[in-house]
Computed example of a mutant assay.
Amino acid sequence: MPLVSSNYNPPLFFKNGHLATIYCGLFRKVNGIVQKRERLSLFDGDFLDLDWSDSIVPSNKLVILLHGLEGDGQRPYITGSAKLFNQNGYNACAVNYRGCSGETNKRYRSYHSGVTEDLKEVIDHILKTKDYSEIYIKGFSLGGNLVLKYLGEEETVPKEIRGAVAVSAPCNLHSSCQQLLTFKNILYAIRFKGNLIDKLRQKQVLFPELITDSDIKKIKTLKDFDDIYTSRAHNFKDALDYYTQCSSLQFLPNIEVPSLIINAQDDSFLGSECYPFSEVEQNPNLYLETPKYGGHVGFWGKNNITYTERRALDFFNELGF
């Protein structure tokens, strides 16, 4: 499909990409949502925690929500999405990746931008234990890449999955990493790296022979973290091999489920390769919207409902049966 036009036009303050990103990431609050946690045991003995919230009316529709790097099921962009969907006839399942629900996971491995096998287990679990005729997936940042990769690499996607939305998706992971290593993103990179190293030290207690103090001291950048931990823990040669294998860009031509990508033009985390114009033009199941403003998972909106929350709801409603 051709590029989707966007009418998103926020107030002046939120036309600054960094301010939009920071406000929605650090200052936005979402109240009035009740989540119930379910622990899912994985095939390898590890676990995932799923945070469920219900529609205000009985529903056979579900939205699976996937958070970004070092996020969790309680981040405002997750709870805000869940709340709006709940108010409009959808149940919501917010997935906390391994080690992201407040408790260190059991295995040496954790999560990364391409762990679709864990998403498959979540979907299989839902199909076996619930009765939903319509399932939609909405992913943010890392989660956006994850859902696009999943849809494009699977030969057969369950018929219940009717659509997907990817917000601020780093479709080319190497391009996004290069942006995060630039000076304009230094504060974000420091915050991400600090959180990742804190978790790595917690995991070091369980696996001291695999994670040494010497290794941790070598981590100066986010790429170093992927070279020293992500690639080793998940069987990649190095960070570049991880970025190459897990970027969703190469899987976009194969997607057969209607999918909308919303990447703001002022998103400082995304390089030019993260805007898949040609791939979208060649696949009738893909839609790409590139608002001029929005930042990274920002998209401020009136009444504490972001633009992408309303946009995803409208997109899924249009696909509904």
Results as ranks from 00 to 15, higher is better:
residue 109 R to C: 13
residue 138 K to C: 11
residue 162 R to M: 11
residue 162 R to K: 15
residue 162 R to W: 07
residue 135 I to P: 01
residue 155 E to G: 13
residue 145 N to T: 11
residue 146 L to F: 08
residue 141 S to Y: 03
residue 135 I to W: 08
residue 131 D to K: 15
residue 104 T to R: 13
residue 104 T to A: 15
residue 115 V to W: 09
residue 118 D to W: 01
residue 138 K to L: 14
residue 143 G to V: 05
residue 111 Y to R: 05
residue 113 S to M: 02
residue 114 G to L: 04
residue 158 P to L: 09
residue 155 E to N: 15
residue 157 V to N: 10
residue 104 T to C: 13
residue 125 H to P: 05
residue 134 E to I: 10
residue 148 L to H: 02
residue 163 G to P: 02
residue 156 T to L: 14
residue 122 V to F: 04
residue 111 Y to P: 03
residue 108 Y to T: 06
residue 157 V to W: 09
residue 165 V to D: 12
residue 144 G to L: 12
residue 115 V to D: 10
residue 120 K to V: 01
residue 112 H to T: 08
residue 124 D to H: 12
residue 111 Y to C: 01
residue 163 G to H: 00
residue 161 I to Y: 05
residue 136 Y to I: 05
residue 140 F to L: 12
residue 160 E to W: 09
residue 112 H to K: 08
residue 139 G to A: 07
residue 163 G to E: 06
residue 139 G to M: 10
residue 114 G to K: 05
residue 150 Y to W: 13
residue 129 T to N: 14
residue 127 L to K: 03
residue 105 N to I: 02
residue 123 I to T: 04
residue 131 D to A: 12
residue 141 S to W: 02
residue 148 L to R: 07
residue 104 T to F: 00
residue 111 Y to M: 03
residue 105 N to L: 05
residue 158 P to V: 09
residue 116 T to P: 00
residue 143 G to T: 07
residue 148 L to M: 15
residue 117 E to D: 14
residue 155 E to Y: 00
residue 141 S to L: 02
residue 147 V to F: 08
residue 128 K to R: 15
residue 162 R to L: 12
residue 110 S to K: 06
residue 130 K to M: 09
residue 127 L to I: 05
residue 165 V to A: 14
residue 162 R to A: 10
residue 120 K to W: 11
residue 115 V to F: 12
residue 129 T to G: 07
residue 159 K to L: 14
residue 138 K to T: 03
residue 143 G to H: 03
residue 108 Y to H: 10
residue 125 H to M: 04
